[in-house]
């Protein structure tokens, strides 16, 4: 009886090993984009709007990157943020010409970088990519632009001229 028990245990152990090896996050398919975000978030640091404001007020040196599309950025962005849409982010980070154009020094791998998007998800993936590129000091803004807006609705810059077109006709005297 003991031999068959031993064999059974061996089989069970090997099955368990096999299954556990399949849980490597690298190749496994996920059932929803939120799972990709959740996986990317592991090991990433986040920052709240209040802490970000504190950093800004303290004149600390850091890169604030808005990873939304240009068409979202111009309507309102956190003061001092540079717009690098998520799709081209990893390609622009090391691009000297790009940073020359922005008139900003290209970020070192040790520089502080904070990424944000509209609600937080895109910035998680962006921050994850930045870490993989070797940037050591990357954070993402919890809740994104929408969270910032709720806490500091008057602290924003916009660039509507970039959209072209003229302002709407003058406002009528309010009311319903």
């Amino acid at each position: 009886m003991y031999r068959s028990v031993k064999y059974m245990l061996l089989v069970v152990a090997s099955i368990t090993l096999f299954i556990s090896s399949c849980t490597c996050p690298c190749e496994q398919e996920v059932s929803s984009p939120d799972e990709i975000v959740a996986q990317a978030m592991e090991g990433l640091e986040m920052i709240t709007p209040e802490d970000l404001k504190q950093k800004m007020d303290s004149l600390e040196m850091f890169y604030l990157i808005d990873v939304r599309e240009l068409g979202e950025y111009v309507y309102g962005y956190i003061p001092g943020a540079i717009n690098i849409p998520g799709g081209i982010l990893i390609f622009k980070m090391g691009n000297e010409a790009f940073w020359d154009n922005e008139m900003i020094y290209p970020p070192e791998k040790t520089d502080k970088i904070i990424a944000y998007c509209k609600k937080g998800k895109r910035s998680v993936i962006a921050a994850d990519y930045l870490e993989r590129l070797g940037y050591e000091n990357v954070k993402f803004l919890e809740g994104g632009w929408k969270a910032w807006e709720m806490v500091y609705p008057l602290e924003y810059e916009e660039n509507l001229e970039m959209l072209g077109g003229s302002h709407d006709a003058e406002e009528d005297a309010g009311g319903c």
């Binding site: 939304r68 068409g71 979202e72 309507y75 309102g76 509209k118 929408k146 807006e149 709720m150 609705p153 008057l154 916009e158 509507l160 302002h167 709407d168 003058e170 406002e171 005297a173 309010g174």
Partner: peptide, 24 residues
């Protein structure tokens, strides 16, 4: 003159008559 500015989703972000809004 009074004016207003949209936010990225097309809502009013700012109106001279009413001030600044946040939508969600």
């Amino acid at each position: 003159e009074a004016f207003h500015e949209p936010d990225v989703d097309g809502n009013h972000k700012y109106m001279s008559i009413k001030g600044t809004f946040v939508w969600a």
